[in-house]
Design a protein around this nucleic acid. Structure first.
Lengths: 232, 232
DNA sequence: TATTATTCTTGATAATTATCAAGTGAGATC
DNA sequence: GATCTCACTTGATAATTATCAAGAATAATA
């Protein structure tokens, strides 16, 4: 990768506490590449050759089995993916594709593991990142097992509204088909769930959603910090 | 805790690479306690004061929201739980209770974090454990999103059969009510799912299940290593 | 502007899963 | 051995969610 990209990458939480010399060695072996939308980056089952870091754009993690497919998560900048597989030197459990044009940093697994062994601060940062990933999946699992489709949608809208400035409107960060899959429902039922939420002040205009009665929506959704708060 | 218990605990993967002196300091502050069945150990939302290690028995991790409850996982010996919360010094995302009489080692979070900072080998062992936990949840999430109830049951039976010696019979490791919740279904539907599997050679006798036609069951279940193999 | 995809929505229907209520059966207790 | 309790099962029904097939709406292209 170009050395002009180094400062930007260094500012990422994962690397900021790392020694400069070690950081340069690590990144020397790395690739920074821009991909168009809908490009397959990794396939579940393959060995974990690289740690991926999303710098720009958005990456969809998905999984397949038995002819079915589901969206597991969307990774926004700046986020890593497939960290656990890299650390364990195991096969990927999920596939990844760009959902929009994305800039991806790819660091060889072997270099990550070496840096991890040699740099306690980096090890600590890795742990933080992995612990965050773990807790995010636990929350997703609780969301899926403890809520109906309508409740999941309502809570997601409340979360997006809060993340996007709490002004009663939000934009869905990706198409509704993917959104439905991420929420664990079919596109058809996502449409119907939106209709169900109409009496609670949810107005849909393409990818823009207006929440005209947040109070009513929250009564229905019953948001729970231990499921919905990304920071907890 | 009693020093006579030290060797047993030391043999656990998490601690075996640790320096003896540091290990003794760590365990000095720890508690080793035996609890009867159905004792609440931790409650979601509480701060993570202790890392828990199940030495004997079995612990149920569960979560509640909005009046509903679901079993998230069962922790067999020797397994840790709530490691991520301890490392992040955050609130527990799940509650835990003993599902049978259990011997639990409790190590203060603060000591874990100190040992982690000071002992790279222990850090490495913690990472391995956390990565395993992460991958286990991902698998559970895929199981839930990509399979029907009957398929989930079928695959779980195949897994238990393989874990218990591949002799065509297995014992459910906990009551059917909990088993159903862990599989993401109601007890009633678990009964019905067993009936659905009857033509595939699944015979139920209390907590003992016989798999008389493993081939047929596997055709239905379509087991997938990236969901079902604990070791992958 | 017309045309063509594409995505999303809607309606009808089917499949799946949950709920409620009652029943069965095995083990515990007296 | 009687009966009590509890876990599990069964049946009837309801609710939820998915599927299939068109039909709008939107964006993309000519």
């Amino acid at each position: 990768m170009r050395s002009s990209d180094l400062p930007e990458v260094k500012s990422i939480h994962l690397f900021e506490s790392m020694e400069d010399s070690r950081f340069e060695i690590l990144l020397n072996a790395a690739y920074l590449q821009t991909f168009p939308a809908q490009v397959d980056l990794i396939r579940e089952g393959d060995p974990a050759d690289f740690l991926h870091v999303v710098l720009d754009g958005r990456v969809e993690l998905f999984a397949q089995s038995n002819g079915r497919e589901t969206t597991m998560a969307m990774v926004p900048p700046v986020g890593t993916f497939i960290l656990a597989a890299v650390l364990k030197d195991a096969a990927y459990l999920m596939s990844a594709r760009t959902s929009q044009k994305s800039r991806i940093l790819m660091i060889p697994s072997e270099n990550i593991r070496i840096a991890f062994e040699e740099d306690p601060k980096f090890a600590r940062a890795i742990i933080d990142e992995l612990a965050n990933c773990y807790r995010a999946v636990i929350k997703a699992h609780k969301d899926l097992k403890l809520r109906t489709t309508v409740e999941r949608l309502a809570n997601r809208l409340i979360r997006y509204n809060s993340e996007q400035g709490n002004n009663g409107s939000l934009r869905l960060p990706y198409d509704k088909r993917t959104f439905a899959s991420a929420l664990g429902m079919t596109p058809e039922n996502l449409s119907r769930a939106f209709k169900t939420l109409k009496p609670y002040g949810v107005r849909v205009d393409g990818a823009t959603i207006y929440l005209d009665d947040l109070t009513a929506l929250e009564v229905l959704a019953k948001p729970n910090p231990l499921i919905d708060d990304r920071s907890v």
